[in-house]
Amino acid sequence: MTNEAQAAPREYRWRMPANWWTRNRHYFLYVVREFTVVPIALWLLWLLVEIKRAGDGPARYSPHGSAAFVVFSVITLVFALYHSYTFLSLAGVIIHFKVLDRPLPSRLIVLAQFALWAVASVVVGFVLIWFAR
């Protein structure tokens, strides 16, 4: 055998192109989904600030309510719903229950999750409104 045959083959290394996330619709949606947490995090930070301000007593508290903030809140709500939706749909895939030795269909699990979500929202809403009076 010649020397070339013994030389370690020089492989061409893989490099991820910078625009990888634009190359496929799923990659793009994934990056968007991941990005939604940024506004949600900002909004939650603001919520902490509001709570801090509210701690000074009802007399001096007036919640921030500019038009821009309302728009921002609505966008954040949409993002949060989108995120929750993907998360709960996933649950059907992940969780598997067996009833009478037969696996529960994942549709049922997803539906149950959404039902629980609705109930939790109603309870939280009720508590907030009831105690706010």
């Binding site: 083959p9 492989e11 061409y12 290394r13 893989w14 991820m16």
Partner: peptide, 12 residues
């Protein structure tokens, strides 16, 4: 994608 290329269409 994501693998080193040994030759043509062959990955490591």
């Amino acid at each position: 994608n994501n693998f080193p290329v040994i030759r043509d269409l062959v990955i490591d």
